[in-house]
Nucleic acid binder design. Structure first.
Lengths: 219, 219
DNA sequence: CGGAAAATGTGCTGTAAAACATTTTTATGA
DNA sequence: TCATAAAAATGTTTTACAGCACATTTTCCG
């Protein structure tokens, strides 16, 4: 369980293990929904998870991507609010769930754990602020390029060192970069014509990453 | 010094006081800049402060508004990054500055203080995520209405119970709601014609708040 | 005070991107 | 393996909004 695990004492580890439930989620299955009261700290063990938020007219924005081993679902609890976003599995995934009151008790007696969450929250907040400017000010090409670069940074490449290790629908790609599905498809085609990518179904090969990063930066 | 103060022991309070510097900032003066290494926890004692981030082509987004007594400038330090946004005074303001290494030492020995920051960060992160959807999906009218409502919620009204207790330029209003200055002016005029507001220079009276909130919600 | 600079207000134009529509391709599972 | 649905692709239309130019007013400060 990565970073958290390493700051826990043997007793604390035991305490967590005793209270950890393992859950499996199917592709596109909801883990929790906007408006729900936060109950569990989730840890993604295997698979991929997206945090999403519904906006005007059912339009969806993907807020964050989660990879193993990362934690989520705790922010709302610490804020004393219901969830403001939902979480769903991108693909078949295995997750652990620890009741948040257990987490609270652990933090209360383990300053290192408190620092872990302070650090995580701080990094996420910085990312969120950056995302605001990226999504509101960049043009379509810049936003899609940004999304592709983020996917590469988040999930990496297959063994060929250029195929994105995530296979998402055009719709998800659109929801990630704040555009319509049509425009995601169109812009993707443009990038292919410009020899930045090779696309085969949901398989995306990035063949000119520097140029893509440039577009993402000044787009 | 509000919430933080109340969780400190007498010794800790003394420690903070000994390390607190008071600074005055003029209207529009920069407090710190994007890219700077975080050095101080800032506390706004008097005045108004905005957190801003520059985007494509120098275009500015106002990320957050700060009122007395609120704390800021600590996120980047906890994340171990340089600042990703700048802070500037809206109007003549008085601020306190506590070196962040002092804050770190205090947190290390005071779990209540740790919880304070976990709580703050969590609330801000939720707000930031909500802002993403508001700014990307709502139309101009909705975004401006939202901004006005946020101003009312943040700084409140004058004694007449309808004049916003903040007097900001059209440009700031535009930067808050992700639009050009021209469009902020135009849309403001529309709202006046619709008898939602009365505007006299920078003095904005909200005379139909329910309708404004409705526009903000479905815009 | 007076002149310059900044802020505000309006109209016009071009265009990026949404909305809509239709066809083609790819999955899915009975 | 065929039927049906879902996803992808592509063309057309519409519109919301940025960009710009310019006039007017207000603010600032030497």
């Amino acid at each position: 369980m990565a970073e958290i695990w390493s700051v826990l004492s043997a007793d604390e580890k035991r305490f967590v293990t005793d209270n950890l439930q393992i859950h499996s989620f199917k592709k596109n299955q909801l883990i929790y929904a906007e408006g729900d009261e936060p109950e569990f700290l989730w840890v993604l063990l295997k698979g991929k998870v997206k945090k999403i938020k519904e906006g005007v007219g059912g339009r969806v924005q993907i807020l964050r991507l989660i990879r193993p081993v990362q934690y989520f679902g705790y922010r709302a609890f610490f804020a004393g609010e219901p969830y403001v976003s939902s979480a769903a599995a991108f693909e078949p995934s295995t997750l652990g769930a620890v009741p948040l009151h257990i987490v609270r008790d652990l933090i209360q007696n383990n300053m290192k754990l408190a620092w872990f969450f302070i650090h995580e929250l701080s990094r996420n907040l910085g990312g969120s602020d950056t995302k605001i400017v990226n999504l509101t000010q960049k043009h379509i090409r810049g936003r899609l390029a940004e999304a592709l670069v983020v996917l590469a940074d988040n999930y990496g490449y297959e063994d060929d060192n250029c195929t994105l290790k995530i296979y998402m629908s055009r719709e998800d790609l659109a929801n990630l970069s704040n555009m319509t599905t049509s425009n995601a498809i169109r812009t993707l085609t443009t990038f292919v014509n410009e020899h930045l990518l090779i696309v085969d179904g949901r398989r995306i090969k990035i063949i000119n990453e520097p140029q893509l990063r440039k577009i993402s930066k000044f787009g």
